[in-house]
């Protein structure tokens, strides 16, 4: 079927199999490979992107369901490495990533959280990120980064 999705502000259209998963549309059609797949059961959150501004697991959404909607991936958060989004900056400052595989999804989950709750407590952050697995950091610095990003945004 024909699908047209706004990905990071650009219209991406293609004729794809009906069963195409959004994560594969993003990676293989839109050519944006930051968004990863880490499981088969919507458990790990590595594929998290924003769909119309809210976090979703793009492995559990059909491209067809996103037809006509807006998708934001980590590549679309900021113009480039020199002008990072506050959440990206905080992840770097707090060493909230190691191997980087969960990172795009984790960042998008954090962005979605802060959009809904601009000043979360540590407990709220821990609860809001429970759908995103990280095997490297023990989450300690991820939580600190989200707290730091929240306080930076609160101050700006």
């Amino acid at each position: 079927m024909k699908v047209a999705i706004s990905v990071n502000g650009s219209q991406v259209g293609a004729d794809v199999e009906d069963r195409t998963l959004l994560v594969h549309f993003i990676r293989d059609v839109a050519g944006l490979t930051a968004t990863n797949t880490g499981c088969d059961t919507s458990s790990c959150g590595a594929c998290t992107v924003l769909l119309d501004g809210r976090s979703v697991k793009s492995c559990t959404v059909l491209a067809a369901q996103a037809d006509g909607h807006e998708v934001t991936t980590v590549e679309g958060l900021a113009p480039g490495p020199d002008q990072m989004h506050p959440v990206q900056r905080a992840f770097r400052a707090e060493h909230a990533l190691q191997c980087g595989f969960c990172t795009p999804g984790m960042v998008m989950a954090a962005v979605s959280l802060l959009a809904e709750n601009p000043s979360p407590t540590e407990e709220e952050i821990r609860s809001a990120l429970e759908g995103n697995l990280c095997r490297c950091t023990g989450y300690h610095n991820i939580v600190r980064a989200v707290l730091a990003a929240a306080s930076e945004r609160g101050g700006s």
């Binding site: 919507s42 959150g45 998290t48 769909l51 809210r54 976090s55 979703v56 697991k57 559990t60 959404v61 989950a109 979605s112 959280l113 809001a128 429970e130 759908g131 995103n132």
Partner: peptide, 9 residues
């Protein structure tokens, strides 16, 4: 229910 991403969908 689930996690935030699940609750969004």
């Amino acid at each position: 229910v689930g996690d935030p991403q699940v609750r969004h969908r």
